[in-house]
Design a protein around this nucleic acid. Structure first.
Lengths: 215, 215
DNA sequence: TAAACCATACGACAAAATGCGTATTTATTT
DNA sequence: AAATAAATACGCATTTTGTCGTATGGTTTA
């Protein structure tokens, strides 16, 4: 059985998706949610899921933010975006957020089913019109991204130096020796870095710093 | 003052480099070593250095291995390769190992000095003939690399799954919940991963796995 | 059928990392 | 001159990691 969740604020469209899935006996819709917040709550209690069909336009937490949050906490869960809008920005942001596929809601049942199966087999799935847009986005990089997404975070040069050594896998003591400081100071720098980047461990700090081109 | 170390197994060539550097009063040669092993030993006691001039052909531990080791432990130290050979493989491997510059030993004093200063200012330095080779190497990727460097490491699918979640910054408990296992099992998997990859922490495991295209 | 490997699980100890508070000195900015 | 930011440093409590050993059932393979 393929365990699926549907996230959409529109009851009518939720029903439409349910109908499409009802043709296939090996798909079980474990639950539905009306926005990202509700999805995360329900996942807390039951993340015994394979895949999420996610709308984008939703109140409270939209599908892109939700995708980011889910992928961060449950990287093994597959997510297919299922939305009526196909503008470049949504597609781009969804991919960035970690979506595994992107369908328009007008997709027919069989294609949707195939897409789900392919995604679970480690592939990606999208309607042709979306695929074309994806290729174009790849050919001409940048655009909304970068400027929009990049937050205003500044690290001091010392902090960057520490972070760079951290990213090599060095321990606090080793970094302290390298920079002729006490280990306590390194720890304080790291602490300040975490606060600035709003993260709670090395890995996240390094990843966030890299995505913001700080290191 | 710019603090420099010279690593070369040939006393005669060591002297030649010393002579070239002697023209510049702001360069102080802190010590000399005859191979990578000796360099590492001396660095243990005194890594209050700015830059290392490194030969490639040396007994015990050659310049490429030494560069890798030094860069791993003391990422802030700059390293300029200084060798008589300019074959593609050496250049490529040196760059991979983290060298900040690459000069042939026939380089004249002023150019060497300029290269050192530029490197310390965050740039890179190399003789034009090397620069050309570098560009060519960039244009036609692969070659010796990949196949040579890549070791035979295989992780089980479960281990890869765990490693992927690790790379997202998840803690053992979170991964355990995601995969419906005990935290102890996750730790055992991680332990096995470390043994296979011959590393001792998350960061190194993730980096090694990525460079071997395991994740 | 053994042997080897894999996935699972627990316990124990040491080392490392994280979070929070506090404090001093120096430089920069208002 | 006062306020602010940066770099340095220590201490304490707690959590997380890393390393070791051991064990069991299942699967694959020689």
């Amino acid at each position: 059985m393929i365990r699926v969740a549907i996230v959409d604020d529109n009851t009518f469209l939720q029903k439409a998706i349910l109908d499409k899935l009802s043709f296939f006996e090996d798909i079980e819709v474990k639950f539905r949610a009306f926005d990202g917040t509700e999805l995360l709550e329900k996942l807390e209690k039951n993340h015994h899921l394979d895949l999420i069909l996610m709308d984008i336009e939703m109140p409270k937490m939209n599908g892109i933010e939700a995708t980011e949050a889910v992928k961060h906490k449950y990287p093994q869960l597959k997510i297919i975006m299922l939305t009526v809008f196909d503008n470049d920005e949504n597609i781009f942001k969804s991919i960035k957020a970690g979506a595994d596929g992107y369908f328009l809601k007008e997709v027919n049942p069989q294609e949707l089913y195939n897409g789900i199966v392919e995604t679970l087999n480690g592939g990606a799935a999208m309607t042709p019109s979306i695929a074309l847009k994806t290729l174009k986005l790849l050919r001409e990089p940048v655009s909304f991204d970068e400027s929009v997404n990049r937050e205003e975070i500044t690290l001091t040069s010392r902090e960057i130096e520490v972070l760079e050594q951290l990213s090599k896998g060095l321990k606090y003591n080793a970094i302290a020796e390298n920079l002729f400081l006490s280990a306590g100071t390194i720890r304080k720098h790291v602490e300040n870095i975490y606060t600035k980047l709003q993260v709670h461990n090395k890995l996240e700090a390094i990843q966030k710093a890299k995505s913001n081109k700080l290191i």
